[in-house]
Computed example of a mutant assay.
Amino acid sequence: MDAADLLDLLGNENRRRILAVLARKPRYVTEIGDLLGLSPKAVIGHLRKLEAAGLIESTEGRARRKYFSIVDPLRLEVTLSPYEFTVKRSYPQSSGPSPGEGDHVDVDLDTDDLATELDQLLALRQDLSLAQRRLEGRVAGTLDRLAEESEADRLGAAVALAIANGARSRAEIAARVGIPPEDVAHVLAVLAREDVINHRSDGIILSK
């Protein structure tokens, strides 16, 4: 089973609870059901899936009772960033002695933490994606404004040049610059506010 399938398997809360119980010591079906408030049928179904995935194994104990336990240490790593989402599994080598038959290693492991961390990471990815979209929108808006200002500067310079070359009316300026008279009126209003031109009885002239 690959890491992605393993992550799907551990997405079930009851299977994570069963693993947390088995991480403390081997247990049998009825014992697991009593601890977790699950029916024997439900426990058996989850145990079969965990055993098929190679996460647990069963051994026959006293009174021919079947005990389930964790097979080997397993590490599941989730990497999440704006550019990457990977899930990896590894088998860290145990540094302690091998437990003997009937012994168990008491590990304080809460597998619910794994699902909680995954939920937090997925929420973080969503927040980052939203922030990225907002940033892209602001960049696009700024570029649009720069383009508009550049176009306005170009038209303003062209209108001023036409006036300097003798154009005195909006119609003359529009003909020389090659833009509609209504656009000329808008550019003239901007130039007048900036004190670049003056309106006189004999026409439009550049300010001195």
Results as ranks from 00 to 15, higher is better:
194 E>C: 03
144 D>P: 00
152 A>D: 11
108 D>V: 06
99 P>T: 13
10 L>V: 00
127 D>K: 11
100 G>A: 11
157 A>D: 08
87 V>W: 04
84 E>G: 06
194 E>H: 13
38 L>V: 05
80 L>P: 01
111 T>C: 02
76 L>K: 05
32 I>N: 03
9 L>F: 08
10 L>Q: 03
160 A>V: 12
208 K>D: 14
179 I>E: 09
199 H>W: 03
159 V>C: 05
28 Y>R: 08
177 V>R: 07
22 L>D: 03
2 D>N: 14
79 T>F: 10
43 V>N: 02
20 A>G: 15
113 D>E: 14
56 I>N: 01
108 D>G: 04
125 R>S: 12
129 S>N: 10
143 L>G: 02
178 G>D: 07
159 V>R: 01
180 P>S: 04
67 Y>D: 06
48 R>G: 09
75 R>K: 13
133 R>S: 09
150 S>F: 02
78 V>D: 08
126 Q>W: 07
156 G>N: 06
67 Y>Q: 06
165 N>G: 02
58 S>G: 13
153 D>S: 11
69 S>K: 12
131 A>Y: 03
13 E>N: 03
203 G>R: 02
35 L>V: 08
178 G>Q: 10
173 I>M: 10
65 R>L: 13
63 A>N: 14
101 E>K: 14
132 Q>A: 10
91 Y>K: 09
182 E>N: 11
63 A>W: 15
155 L>H: 03
89 R>N: 02
188 L>C: 03
43 V>L: 06
42 A>S: 15
49 K>A: 13
109 L>W: 05
13 E>A: 15
128 L>S: 09
59 T>E: 15
36 L>V: 00
28 Y>A: 11
206 L>S: 09
186 H>A: 12
203 G>Y: 00
175 A>Y: 03
189 A>K: 12
70 I>Y: 04
41 K>Y: 12
93 Q>V: 15
171 A>S: 14
202 D>A: 04
49 K>T: 09
37 G>C: 04
62 R>C: 02
33 G>P: 05
204 I>A: 00
10 L>N: 00
207 S>Y: 07
151 E>S: 08
99 P>I: 15
24 R>W: 04
2 D>M: 01
77 E>P: 00
193 R>D: 15
95 S>N: 07
167 A>H: 08
127 D>G: 06
175 A>Q: 14
173 I>H: 06
48 R>K: 12
80 L>C: 10
139 V>A: 04
23 A>I: 00
181 P>W: 09
107 V>H: 10
165 N>H: 14
27 R>Y: 04
141 G>N: 06
14 N>H: 11
17 R>L: 14
184 V>Y: 03
76 L>C: 06
135 L>Q: 08
204 I>Y: 01
89 R>L: 02
29 V>K: 03
116 T>Q: 11
65 R>V: 12
57 E>N: 08
121 L>S: 11
72 D>E: 14
9 L>P: 05
200 R>H: 05
109 L>A: 10
62 R>N: 08
